[in-house]
Computed example of a mutant assay.
Amino acid sequence: MTHSKQSRTKLIYALIAAAVLIVLLVWMQGGFKDKVEPGVSESVANGKAEERAPTVKVVRKAVEKIFAWPGTAAARTVAQIAPKIPGRILEIAVRAGDRVKKDQVLARLDERETRSRLGQARAALAAAEAQAGHARADARRIQNLYDKEAATRQALDAALAAARTAEAQVREARDAIREAESSQTETVLRAPFDGIIVERRLEPGDMALPGSPILVLQESQRLRIESAIPAECAGLVEIGDELKVRIANPERELDAVADEIQPAADPRTRTVLVKARLPEDSGVQPGAFGWLYQACGQDEVLLLPVSAVSRVGQLESVRLVVDDKVRLRHVRTGKRHDGQIEILSGLDEGDTVLLPEAGR
């Protein structure tokens, strides 16, 4: 019997605790306060909204559609550093990422072969000059004999032709020397302009061939952004137009000027390559990703002042005036236009929205 009474006592205490908890929850939810119509701000439910703060109406306007076309920063001038003569690479003085000055030595080739060719050319010149001297002496001797009627005209013509041939061989030998001397200077590769090394394709010990680049050099101070724009929008861009550019990393906005437009569209993508010049010394690295902004066409949008939209975390809302009462209305916004913002959903044209009070 005593056990039964204890069980009932515990049950009563549990019911009392549950009842107290329910009452507490109802009180925390405002269950004992006067009710205000759902969606209406309690502070203005009993008064006129227009008397408490200024209002503004949602308007529909035509605005330019701004598109962000992806692009890549590239140097206006790119040089493929390659030798004019074949040779084994002895030294490469720079690496990718190094900044270089004009005429700075970038690489050296083995010059033993060019020195050998130069020596051969000089020896050939000496031989040609000796042969030419002998031919000139023969021509003078035959001429004297011919004047004394001791030699035939045929012999004189042959001697003069041999002298002219020897002189031509001398000139050819001298040209070979100049070519060999020029080839010897080609064993040292220098930077044609100030820039940055972006690629190193060969290493010391490799065989360098004419037309095969050892290094790739880009002009680092004069860059532009290159972007493929749909043909219908690219037709609105003209040389000299000012365009906005946003670079991704580090994020920044720059002013650019269109300075080259591809004359024909790509038949596969229907796009036109547009190149816009970036400011000098912009600090942008070649190859950086960015966006080229361009106005293309117009669109009808709903607009509100930016200050009329409140944000709490990821939620955006406005205070909508309905029947002289203020209701909280969640909205979704879009792009900004000179102090106004697009309303994508949540409001209709002509809706009245409460603006924040001055000083708040």
Rank of each mutant, 00 (worst) to 15 (best):
Q6N: 01
S7F: 15
S7W: 09
W27Q: 09
P38D: 13
V40T: 03
E42D: 05
E42N: 02
G47C: 00
R52C: 03
R52N: 10
A62K: 07
A62G: 08
A62Y: 05
I66P: 05
I66R: 15
G71M: 01
T72I: 15
E91C: 02
V94W: 09
V94L: 02
R112W: 03
R112E: 09
A123I: 07
A124L: 04
L125F: 09
Q131A: 13
A139W: 01
Q143C: 09
Q143R: 13
N144T: 03
D147E: 13
A151W: 13
L160R: 10
A166P: 00
E167K: 11
E172F: 02
Q184K: 01
T185K: 10
E186P: 05
R190H: 05
G195M: 08
I196R: 12
E199K: 10
R201L: 15
R201C: 04
A208Q: 13
P213M: 05
Q218I: 02
A228V: 00
C233W: 04
A234S: 05
G235A: 15
L236M: 13
V245I: 12
R246K: 11
N249S: 15
E251W: 06
I261S: 11
R268A: 14
L278N: 02
Q285M: 12
Q285T: 14
W291Q: 12
W291N: 09
C296D: 01
G297Y: 01
E300N: 15
V301Y: 12
L304H: 01
V306I: 14
V321R: 00
H330I: 04
G350W: 08
A358H: 14
R360G: 07
